[in-house]
Design a protein around this nucleic acid. Structure first.
Length: 503
RNA sequence: GCCCCCAUCGUCUAGAGGCCUAGGACGCCACCCUUUCAAGGUGGAGAUCACCGGUUCGAAUCCGGUUGGGGGCACCA
């Protein structure tokens, strides 16, 4: 390594470089997280750069999704756009590649002038033909260098035709070696690479080129990215050398996998962070879960906040092998985090997932009933639906037969519901509390010689319309005396009708 | 096809030569608790550390090969 490639003495700077061609992806989120944890751990600077050179696929909407969800995860950065469409912060502005085109053009020209790059007029059809031939001969598909050997007359002829050339890097046939922070020494033979395109015919530069130009321009010292870029690294190093840049340290983190162990994809898995957010996964769950996909502190501890992760994180300890995204484990972790919340905190988080019809005071009363039953915040809707549904809707949810406990007929069940009704009716509104309700109902059950569980079944169904519900008496308390009585009456009506029809 | 990377229970992982008759967690099963469902508690099944061969007194840990898996080879990022 030459002196120019020594990055150890420079202040540490890392970046995340999402492309706004889709919503924030699980993999991008995890890469961003690792970069963040690394930067925080070593006290470095963290940069957000928007890679929007693919103008056809990049949108402002995706940029917003990415930035918003990064914030949602609790990941912050020192430089770059802080809000979608907002002003860039930092000494290396702008941080959107679409606004840095002049620099890329300049650097491309410099490469051509120095003989490190050249124009190529081959058409897509011609290139395709070459590739097909190579495939035939079972060779690696790569550019055959035809335009490198063009005479000046031929170049002028192409130019006169009005054909716009692409720019290709002249890749020296040399062995590229680098010391990956995670994988150790990695070696490639660049003779196998072929001269790749760095600027399109329309003048728009390509990813491999702009990434290298910007990493230098922004003085990035450590490039932490997905393993899918490992084989692209020799290209980047070839570019770095041609441009005379300093070589950053590389760290290639393992891929997140579909259950079939292929690279996690939209096709086979839910990959958008937004989707998890909308279902009610907590950001602290996602962070904790993502951090452990490919890394662990080396102990048996597994619950960590973002700050604790930053304190413990060590890139060198990141695994080499890919990790399957296990949604069962994600669900479990979310439950752990939900249960760790105070009632007040959970009420706040639940608010967006609850109908407006429920006022904040009610939501706070709902929380203790649902807290340990939630996997995702989103699940709360079904749990408390009986509170917002009308009595008629609830009644429509079950049939008379559903009310009957095992080995009890309609007449017996009607008797039990009547007993419960009678026991509750005399209660003042103020006494309509879970404790009192439970005591009354248990007493009624005992007097009739019913098992409590059997006795509660028709009541649960009548009150909530469901055989699975939050705790019965808490639910009754929330619903209030009037509505409970009305629903009990409705159940009674069904049971009576059942007796008539079956008689 | 070529190049590169990887390999511990189904899954996430602990393990950096003797502490491993391989530990934890999720999931699964059973039991307990219990008004349903959860949550919680207890216990259990589950990995000849992919395979083969070395190095070593000793290997999941080091080396080589094999197999398997994955990724990359665009005028996408």
């Amino acid at each position: 390594m030459s002196d120019t490639s020594d990055t150890t003495s420079r202040p540490i700077r890392v970046r995340m470089a999402p492309s706004p061609t889709g919503p924030l992806h699980i993999g991008t989120a995890r890469t961003s997280l690792y970069n963040y944890l690394f930067a925080r751990h070593v006290g470095g600077t963290y940069v957000l750069r928007i890679e929007d050179t693919d103008t056809a696929r990049s949108t402002a909407e995706f940029e917003r999704d990415i930035i918003d969800n990064l914030h949602w995860l609790g990941i912050s950065w020192d430089e770059g756009p802080q809000v979608a469409g907002g002003e860039d912060i930092g000494p290396y502005r702008p941080y959107r590649q679409s606004q840095r085109m002049d620099r890329y053009a300049r650097e491309a020209e410099r490469l051509v002038a120095s003989g490190h790059a050249y124009h190529c007029w081959c058409t897509p059809e011609e290139l395709e033909a070459v590739r097909a031939e190579q495939a035939e001969r079972k060779e690696a598909p790569r550019y055959n260098g035809r335009c490198l050997r063009l005479t000046d007359a031929e170049r002028e002829a192409f130019a006169r035709e009005g054909r716009e050339p692409v720019v290709r890097l002249k890749v020296p046939p040399e062995t590229i070696r680098f010391d990956d922070l995670i994988r150790g020494e990695v070696e490639f033979d660049n003779a196998l690479l072929g001269d790749f395109v760095i600027v399109r015919a329309n003048g728009v530069p390509l990813y491999h080129f702009v990434v290298v130009v910007d990493d230098e321009a922004m003085e990035i010292t450590h490039v932490i990215r997905g393993e899918d870029h490992l084989s692209n690294t020799p290209k980047h190093i070839a570019l770095i050398r041609a441009l005379g840049y300093a070589e950053p340290r590389f760290a290639h983190i393992p891929l997140i996998l579909n259950p079939d162990r292929s690279k996690m994809s939209k096709r086979k898995s839910q990959t958008a962070i937004t989707a998890y957010r909308e279902q009610g996964y907590l950001p602290e769950t996602m962070v904790n879960f993502l951090a452990f996909l490919g890394w662990s502190p080396g102990t048996e501890e597994e619950i960590f906040t973002l700050d604790q992760l930053a304190e413990r994180f060590d890139v060198a300890a990141v695994h080499k092998g890919g990790a399957v995204f296990d949604s069962d484990r994600l669900d479990y972790l979310n439950g752990v985090y939900i249960r760790a919340l105070t009632d007040e905190q959970l009420a706040l988080r639940l608010r967006p997932f609850l109908p407006d019809a429920l006022d904040d005071a009610t939501v706070l009363r709902v929380v203790p009933l649902v807290k340990e039953r939630l996997v995702r915040l989103n699940d709360v809707g079904e749990l408390v639906a009986f509170l917002v549904e009308t009595d008629a809707e609830v009644e429509g949810l079950y049939a008379a037969g559903d009310l009957l406990p095992k080995k009890r007929d309609a007449a017996e069940t009607a008797g039990a519901v009547t007993a419960a009704r009678d026991a509750l009716q005399s209660l003042a509104d103020a006494d309509f509390s879970a404790d009192v309700l439970e005591a009354r109902c248990r007493q009624a059950a005992e007097e009739m010689g019913w098992k409590a569980g059997d006795f509660f079944r028709p009541l649960r169904l009548a009150v909530t319309g469901r055989s699975v519900s939050p705790p019965l008496f808490g639910s009754m308390e929330l619903l209030g005396r009037e509505r409970v009585l009305a629903r009990l009456d409705a159940a009674l009506g069904k049971l009576t009708a059942e007796r008539v029809t079956s008689a």
